[in-house]
Amino acid sequence: MAQTTKNASSVQRAPAIVVALFILPAFALFAAVLLYPMASALGYSLFEWRGGTNLVRFNWFDNFVVLFTEHPFVEQMPRAFLHNIAIFAGTLVLQNSAGLFLAVQLHRLGPVRRLFQVLYTTPYLVSPLVVGYLWTLLLSPTFGPVNAALDALGLDSLAVSWLGEPATALPVLILVSVWQWIGFPVLLYGAALGAIPPELNDAASVDGAGGWRRFRHVTLPLLTPVIGTVSILTFIGAMEMFTLPYAFGGATGSPAGATDVLSVLFFRVSFQSGASNALGVSSALATLLFLFILGGALLGRRVIRAQEEKLS
């Protein structure tokens, strides 16, 4: 506000035609390629289609009903959904325990923490496809160094076909996803820790608070906003995840659907099912996913706000 009034005299006006020339290229591209398809997307799910985009009729919520009643959706959708939730839960737990621990310890290190931050963030910048294929090779039961290391440590019994067994494929997917992502929370928690005035901790020390109590009652409440933001980003990322599961299990979520997630199911229905009304059903799936993510994110924000009020 203050800035607007300060700059008020200097804010320029320009003839309408000039304004249009400046704005129009961005707006036209944005509206035609992003806004228009987005707006039509929600509508797609309410119609029946035949062989691509030939409109048959308006069929209310039939496409949604199909998802919950017909084979294969009635089996595959809940399974994929549970996998997304497992990925979210696993990531949330690990980044707020191990990730938070790393961030707090790095913060105590002083300037060398930069080096660690860079090292921890590197996997985050590599393409999830490369990460998926790389771990497929590293975990290979025939030549992978991971199983070779387990053998060398005398843990031969653990040297299994990690991505070949349905029982281990999903946990591996979760761990690799965390491996790639966790540098980001560590970085953000570190930045938030850096913003806490040292006087607060000093004051608590003077009052006789020990390390854990200082962390619990001074640091943690101040970190709540950033933990909340990261948790919501984690939620969105886990629900929309496509590339890493695709690299591990392809379009079918192999082995035996163990790495199947909602986006992969969506891809399968949209582009590989060959079903006549693929457009209607897959749009319904995308709409459900969108509503769930939106609802989850809004709910998450409310929870965080309530938490902040309770702690402050």
Binding site: L34, L42, E240, S282
Partner: peptide
């Protein structure tokens, strides 16, 4: 309106974009 584009989930836009490009 421009900022609303930051919130758009990509998944929802894929099919309409595909048919637009088609």
């Amino acid at each position: 309106l421009f900022m609303s584009g930051l919130l758009i989930p990509f998944m929802l836009a894929i099919l309409p974009m595909f048919y637009l490009m088609d």
